[in-house]
Design a protein around this nucleic acid. Structure first.
Lengths: 136, 136
DNA sequence: CTAGGTATTGGACGCTGTCTAAACCTGAAC
DNA sequence: GTTCAGGTTTAGACAGCGTCCAATACCTAG
């Protein structure tokens, strides 16, 4: 059931606007894991007057409404991932690139055995080197 | 075989100094996961004249020499962990506190099956809520 | 059309991490 | 003890990132 970008936003209780659509158009559809400023740079190509604050606000709104996930994997940068279903992440030591690892590729056991803590979500974070062909 | 803090530094090829010992005394022995500025604040209590740059340099040196691990788990902050053996981490959503989870508490399978990527290290990062008693 | 709420803007702000140049210490050789 | 070279420390400047604010522009319901 396609309803277009404006509908997708409305379905999450987000009032569409030109700026929000421009951000959504890029960030909801990318395979990258861009930082907020990378999103800003990208969106400015189409909407040159958009301000940094708007992009930051919009991204945070999308996270709050479940359209994006916020990841804290790389040094000092928060990145955004439109792939909201559970999956793991691999960080390339050399390039800093972040690759998605399918949930089924790994098998984590005994999570339920952690006594006294209430685990909302978890993921495996792997670090190492990826061959050129696999890099994002 | 105890050899004291100066020996522990020398054993890693680090020239001891009053400032480095003051940093080491706190950070190598804590159960917390302090940020660099937290280390600075703490060490200043004993060595009031120590500069921020020295603390940052010292922490980076300790990481380079394997005395500390650098973690990128919480929003926008790099924290340091004197517990260098492999283990997992749990982040309390509410307080931001980071707890160590013993390596044996979880069981990750199929890591070796990830084709074409060379995994140097991995860990499970869990998020949720911890009861007050377990908080660091 | 108007009123009220919402969104956007640009700038200021604070925090974190890095860099620099100068001062300083240290310890090895004499 | 003196000297010297190298490593260490220092204060401050700097840059990047994320947040906040007050003012303005925009939408939408009525």
């Amino acid at each position: 059931m396609k309803r277009g970008l404006p509908g997708a936003l409305r379905a999450r209780g987000i009032q569409p606007s030109a700026q929000r659509l421009a951000v959504a158009e890029y960030v909801l559809d990318t395979l990258d894991h861009p930082s907020a400023d990378q999103v800003w740079a990208r969106v400015k190509r189409r909407v040159p007057m958009i301000s940094r604050a708007t992009v930051y606000n919009t991204l945070n709104l999308f996270v709050e409404k479940g359209l994006l996930r916020q990841l804290v994997l790389a040094e000092g940068r928060i990145v955004f991932d439109p792939h909201v279903a559970p999956h793991h992440h691999f960080v390339d030591d050399e390039t800093g690139a972040i690759l998605d690892v399918p949930w089924e590729a790994l098998d984590v056991r005994k999570v339920e055995s952690l006594e006294g803590i209430d685990v909302r979500e978890y993921q495996v974070v792997l670090r190492g080197r990826a061959p050129r062909s696999r890099r994002a």
